[in-house]
Amino acid sequence: MLEIYIDGATLGENGKSAASFIAKNKHVCIEGYTYIGEASNHEAEFHALLFALTTLKDNYQSEILSIRSDSQIVVDTVEKAYTKNSTFLKYYDAIKELMGYFPHVFIKWIPDKENKRADALARKGLLTETTVIQSCS
């Protein structure tokens, strides 16, 4: 099973945004961040989940994913498989398709204080305006 921590960061209400993830277990530790341009913070949070799933789908399809997010909106949307928000719906549809690559995907809300590394990575994406995927320790 891979534990995955995701986060999004935005400057202002709808400004420059970035997303990040950390995926780890006893044998694997991968982290990444990506600059996504102008978006709301909620969109950045959804993008973080998309970024993680897209990055992992080619090499880790046999893994069960346990996703942790400090975004209640992302967690609720994925758990309920529903949103009224048309903007979030396009993200959810893509997330649902990507989740199909894995045997099981669980998502859980966590407080900000348990997501500090993912937050720092998302902020690095904001500062550098780049995409990086790398091994972590």
Rank of each mutant, 00 (worst) to 15 (best):
27 H>P: 08
21 F>S: 02
88 F>P: 03
48 A>V: 08
125 G>K: 13
12 G>E: 15
115 N>C: 10
93 D>F: 14
125 G>H: 05
29 C>P: 01
58 D>K: 00
118 A>W: 06
85 N>S: 15
20 S>G: 08
38 E>K: 15
7 D>N: 01
110 I>R: 02
55 T>H: 02
32 G>T: 12
58 D>V: 03
110 I>G: 00
96 K>E: 14
25 N>K: 11
69 S>W: 00
109 W>Y: 08
101 Y>L: 04
48 A>H: 03
41 N>Q: 13
107 I>F: 06
17 S>M: 14
36 I>D: 13
113 K>N: 14
7 D>P: 04
22 I>P: 06
107 I>A: 03
121 L>T: 03
93 D>Q: 09
46 F>G: 11
48 A>M: 02
109 W>V: 00
9 A>R: 12
6 I>N: 01
44 A>V: 14
87 T>A: 11
77 T>W: 08
90 K>T: 15
92 Y>I: 08
20 S>H: 07
121 L>R: 06
79 E>A: 11
12 G>N: 14
130 T>E: 13
102 F>K: 05
65 L>T: 05
45 E>W: 00
137 S>G: 12
117 R>Y: 11
101 Y>P: 01
70 D>E: 00
44 A>E: 12
71 S>H: 02
12 G>A: 05
34 T>N: 04
96 K>H: 08
59 N>H: 00
127 L>G: 09
24 K>F: 09
52 A>M: 01
128 T>N: 13
127 L>T: 12
12 G>Y: 15
33 Y>C: 07
135 S>N: 12
44 A>P: 08
76 D>T: 14
27 H>Y: 15
57 K>D: 02
106 F>G: 04
101 Y>Q: 06
50 L>V: 13
128 T>Y: 09
120 A>T: 11
